[in-house]
């Protein structure tokens, strides 16, 4: 009988060994970082120097929206309607990808799909975008001195999202620092932004700032009254070496459909004229963006996701509310419905 038991021992031991090694791998503690005040961390963040790196990132969102079944394409409308559906898709689906940053004005962003990939390659004044599922590329040559205005898609990286949030947060925010965290194998400060106002759905935003380089490594947004983050965008690995320079020279495949796009003319920061800018009502956490959306409300999928409220239809998530008014405007903000209705009436 004892012999029978010993023969089952390996089968009992193997799961223990596996569980043990998984626990060990995830328990590696963060290095000690010197104490800093929130303001010092903001300075660290703002004063960071150009640093070549390559990193993998992951975005996950749990907005309390019914997740759209994979493979179902949202209706591709025109103009603003397309922008709204694209934003919806970006909010409800999880992404992973990689970013490579070389010398200044050299960057490559890759967003992975299961059997596809979207690439954005910026090399000086050359900008290439490639979508493998369409086998289509677009090429833009931006005028000298307008580098910073070009890569819209840079918003997808933790760096860019963190910068935008801090820029937008302003003085209506309480700053604090939590215990140091470890993100992508690097010790980081955890800077917490808490809105001072009650008129927002955002409970807090936590930004992990690399203790050494000041680079934002993770952005976590938690909705008011929730424990689990509604949105998280974080590096899963980071390598602070210069990536292979070949990565930034892109030649589209011979059979790809290549479209030349003329860059927006005008001064630095100005937007292409065919894209109407949303009007923004209010400030900081309470701000509401208003877009002209045409007949977007008639899209069957949107009709399914929204509920009828006073003055239009509401798309409600834990973090963001969007009100589609009967007169064809879309009001979006991280605010309660009442604030949207008040803004619509203004």
């Amino acid at each position: 009988m004892a012999r029978t038991l010993t023969r089952w021992l390996p089968a009992a031991a193997v799961p223990l060994v596996i569980a043990g090694s998984v626990a060990l791998a995830s328990a590696a503690g963060a290095d000690e970082l010197p104490e800093r005040t929130p303001e010092e961390i903001l300075t660290l963040l703002a004063d960071r120097e150009h640093q070549p790196f390559s990193g993998e990132f992951e975005q996950s969102s749990d907005l309390g929206l019914p997740s759209l079944p994979g493979g179902v394409d949202l209706p591709a409308g025109e103009g603003d309607a397309a922008a709204v559906t694209a934003a919806l898709d970006a909010l409800t689906s999880d992404h992973s990808g990689r970013v490579f940053v070389g010398e200044e004005h050299q960057a490559r962003l890759q967003v992975f799909e299961s059997f596809g990939e979207r690439d954005l390659i910026v090399n000086g004044t050359e900008v290439w975008a490639y979508d493998s599922s369409e086998n289509a590329a677009t090429h833009t040559t931006i005028p000298e001195g307008a580098h910073a205005a070009a890569p819209d898609q840079q918003q997808l990286t933790p760096d860019a999202v963190a910068d935008r949030i801090i820029e937008a947060a302003g003085p209506t925010t309480d700053l604090s620092v939590r215990d140091d965290v470890e993100v992508a194998g690097r010790a980081a400060y955890d800077l917490v932004l808490t809105p001072r106002t009650d008129a927002t759905l955002v409970g807090e935003v936590a930004i992990a700032v690399d203790g050494e380089t000041g680079q934002p490594l993770r952005v976590t947004v938690t909705a008011r009254g929730e424990d689990a983050p509604a949105f998280q965008l974080a590096y899963t690995s980071l390598d602070l070496g210069a990536p292979d320079a070949d990565l930034f020279t892109f030649t589209p495949p011979a059979d790809a459909e290549v479209e030349e796009v003329t860059p927006p003319t005008g001064d630095h920061g100005s937007e292409p004229t065919d894209k109407p800018q949303p009007t923004v009502i209010g400030e900081g956490w309470e701000s509401v963006a208003v877009l002209e959306a045409g007949d977007i409300a008639s899209e069957p999928l949107l009709a399914q996701l929204t509920t009828a409220v006073d003055g239009g239809r509401l798309l409600s998530t834990d973090l963001v509310n969007a009100l589609i008014t009967d007169d064809g405007r879309v009001l979006v903000g991280a605010v309660p419905l009442e604030r949207l209705q008040a803004a619509a009436a203004e």
């Binding site: 890759q110 059997f115 596809g116 990939e117 690439d119 290439w128 490639y130 493998s132 086998n135 590329a137 892109f250 030649t251 589209p252 495949p253 011979a254 059979d255 790809a256």
Partner: peptide, 10 residues
């Protein structure tokens, strides 16, 4: 012949 990878490089 030349093959195209997902990243668009050949």
């Amino acid at each position: 012949g030349e093959a195209t990878l997902l990243s668009g490089d050949t």
